[in-house]
Design a protein around this nucleic acid. Sequence first.
DNA 1: ATAAAACCTGACCAGGTGGTCAATATATTG
DNA 2: CAATATATTGACCACCTGGTCAGGTTTTAT
Lengths: 217, 217
Amino acid sequence: MSRVQNENSETKPSIRESNRTKIIEAASKIFASNGYTGTTVQQIAEHAELPKANVLYYFKSKEGIYGAVLSEILSLWNSCLDDATVEDEPSEIFTRYIFEKMELSRTYPDASKIFAMEIIKGMPYLSEDMKHNMSEWFESRVALINEWINLGKMQAVDPQVLLFHIWSSTQHYADFSAQITSLRGEAMTVEDYDKASRYLATSILAGCGLTPKFDIV
Amino acid sequence: MSRVQNENSETKPSIRESNRTKIIEAASKIFASNGYTGTTVQQIAEHAELPKANVLYYFKSKEGIYGAVLSEILSLWNSCLDDATVEDEPSEIFTRYIFEKMELSRTYPDASKIFAMEIIKGMPYLSEDMKHNMSEWFESRVALINEWINLGKMQAVDPQVLLFHIWSSTQHYADFSAQITSLRGEAMTVEDYDKASRYLATSILAGCGLTPKFDIV
DNA sequence: ATAAAACCTGACCAGGTGGTCAATATATTG
DNA sequence: CAATATATTGACCACCTGGTCAGGTTTTAT
């Protein structure tokens, strides 16, 4: 009974977990704006308000910190698309998915940036395990979309290209926020995100011969 | 007679320019896959087949090399959208622009990657000059699109959001090529790029109430 | 030919980096 | 209250990095 907030199976009280999350949060910010090699353990330590040696006590190495950050990020990547089925309406699922991805970009821009840089550099630290999970997820979603197409629920578009389209256009608002803010002259507000989401949903769904269902988001 | 290959106005023979471009080309590759801080001058020197001290003879500093690479990249960024006018048909211009951006992603993926990382990190090295140029270009294109809208040549979509959409969905194929190859199981061919370009043009133009003009690309 | 300019490069250095370690302090447990 | 596990930390080090420089070679100009 009680003690619910622990996602881990271990019953370790807290100080360990508390410090580890403090470090991971600090590291995420710095990795996002400095990149992996541009980040020093000293910087992470200062941001976490811990001595450097203490940081290295919880994570044996800088690479260990980075790995923890990466896997933390991937655990965020769950979405409504995960448990969509053939019975669902693609227009609803895609609309919701686009809004979800946009909300993720708005709420966790650092996570998106770190992931983006990792991929741009050729995924040097992404474990085979993570790649495998990504591949499985991707294949199953491609299969699902193909079923929708065969059922005549949407136009015949290449499912892979469609997924890339959704990812790129939504993640862009996190990854390129500096440029967007610079060009617009001001940062994106929640309303701006909503407008952009509606536009993206309209355009992307139109490319599938669908009309977005805004009432459900 | 002969000596045509010099793009610069100076009549300096060649050795200087030849070595500088050798260095910049080598640096582009390494910056793209290692990032700024992840790249060492030694690596650039080896790739350019020059001793390190010789590299530092042509560029005073690592930052100098990076700056040269960045400005080289921005000089690639010219496109058909630059000299489009109100008289032009938006469907033609956008179709051509999307195909151009995709061709750029396919042909110069390293340039796109370096630029993407620079922006993700918050544009720390982009000169005020370059930012200013980008802003001017952006504002004038936004104004042009607004004119098209006022003339009823296309649906009323936010021009800023539209441009971000085009950039993100096309540059994705350069920046995230590692992920794309990994998920597809094979690299994108020229035909794959063409298919994806057609799809993107269809979807993005549909979002503006337009139909792409494939015959002109 | 000769002087001047441009080019080349091995050797070197000061500063910063990730990571270790031994000593100490704190918390947990029986 | 031990005693044992966990947590904390300053000091330290081997290594790597960007950058310098003096002395050399080659090219160009007169």
